[in-house]
Nucleic acid binder design. Sequence first.
DNA 1: GTAATGGGCGCC
DNA 2: AAAGGGCGCCCATTAC
Length: 624
Amino acid sequence: MDTIAVDFETFYKKNEYSVRDLGNWRYVHDERFDPYLMTVFDGANSWAGNPRDFNWDALEDALLLAHNAAFERAIVGRLVEDGIAPVRMLQNQWQCTANMTSYLCGNRALAKALAVLEGQPMSKDIRDWMSGKTWQDAVDAGKADELARYGVGDVRECHGLWTKYSPRWPSHERGLSELTMRQCARGVSIDAELLHEYITVLQEVIFNLEKSLPWTDRGAAPTSPKAIAEQCRVVGIPAPPVKSHFDDGEEQFEAWEIAYGPQFPWVLGVSQYRQLNKLLSSLQTIRERLRPDNTIDFSLLYFGAHTGRWSGGGSGLNMQNLRKVPLYLKDRNLVSPPGSLSVKDAKDWVANCTDYAMDIRRLFRARPGKKFILADLSQIEPRVLAWLTGNFQLLEMLRTGMSIYEAFARVSMGWTGGNLKKENPDLYALAKIQVLGLGYGCGWEKFVAIAASYGVLLTPEKSQELVTSFRAQNPLTTGLWRTLDDAFKQSIHSDFEMALPSGRTMTYRGVSRVVRSKKDKETGKWRADWAFTALVGDKRKTLYGGLLTENLVQATARDVFGQHLLALEDQVGDVIFHVHDEAITEVDQDVTVKDVEHVMSRTPDWLEGCPVSCEAQEAAHYLK
DNA sequence: GTAATGGGCGCC
DNA sequence: AAAGGGCGCCCATTAC
């Protein structure tokens, strides 16, 4: 079979008319859509020109390659609709070399991937210059040849990368890449009526809120930090603490809100404005993306994170960070649950409110005649950590169906009684936060914040006690930190490679040691300190044993979930989208929760002995 | 004018 | 010796 690389240059304008602004489908169906240049390379010959002049027979039955193939594929779909490309073009197989290079070296962008894999620089200047310009503009400016050369260069590189590197890209990973493209194009069905209602209501709420912020009268933006600081100065209260400047920044900010919120409504109003505006932006994006059948396409990036997880971005709507707690609106004003509540408690709090609740997750629903089955893996990361560290005692208890938190309490906290959650809920809560928060080397200050996010308040003394006892009672875990830390440091002046159980390897390129000044906790004095760094994608980061452990666990959990995704598509039905350890499947009425659970409870061959389980439920729309 | 950066906020 | 991590989008501000 021929393998042919294809690339299109299309009219775009940054921040106005681009894939980033509109998503693939809406972009190629816009009236401004103009694929003015097509370039093709089959390994020997290249062609460049207007797609109307292309001999499409040359692509019949070929494997098509593109860097960001989801985009090229959407363009071909539009060309087919317009009768420019033949209908049989919908049958070609595609492979995405951007997905491939993400897997191989953590870089999606062609120029960066070439720089890392081939040590080769590449300029995108002409493409940047084309923002807002047409093919005729390029001709008039005498840049048409340069543009065509650039396009041909792209397809040559794309083809070359595939030829040289595709053998290193395992077939199941190609399968996940293809599945991702299918999922994004297939999209999800939207309750359009509810969407429009939500937008109308939310606009009114935001309008009311904006008016209540004193500085908006003076023309300042609703969330202007300068205006907020000025207002604080005028009324004689301290400016809000910057959350990221402190381990307990979240708590400090909350304390500031509690101290001054009752006297000055705008103190709470700013956060509320940001929350509401973020939600409204998402709703408006969904509205702009609606296709005639009331579905939207979206973007999920295969290997978007260096650990291999998918990321949700690239087209202005992220399906992986839709808010869980509905907004409670009373008389067209937002009433927020107390900040101290956990997500689960906040949801219960809103559920008990009458008036009006707005839940963005309700908008995503199964297509007519189908139903959703939502399934998520149960504590996959701590289970993987237990397997990686050889914590057989814990794994054995999990195998009996015991909760991981109770098993942890028995193995590491001396619990010998019956059902922990029923008999000693306080100890259960302490076990839970340790399992979720202490596996990767977290210190006591940060642990206070993590515990708080699960609704557990720890004093500094209690936090220190838990961190210390966790490390003493879990030598297998601290041993893995140490092992990876040592191995990483041994790799100085070269690359550090970390083998995963699945056979995949994570590579941290260019390990080096840097000297930094650091504040001594006891004396408060600055002194020299070493840190070991390496490249993660194209960014240099400081790494250490606990962090490498976390990366290893996250990557392994991703590989487990990836196997489940392929099996679900193969054996159960369409996976509409997924969020790290949670699959949203859209299935026929005769498919059962058990069918999904069966697939997602399977332990891969390469993780034998690690109990995997999931929780699944049917629903008419997305929830949880 | 656009690019880069950092804070805030959403998720697992 | 110690250090939780992985993302994306919106907004405001600053840098160029």
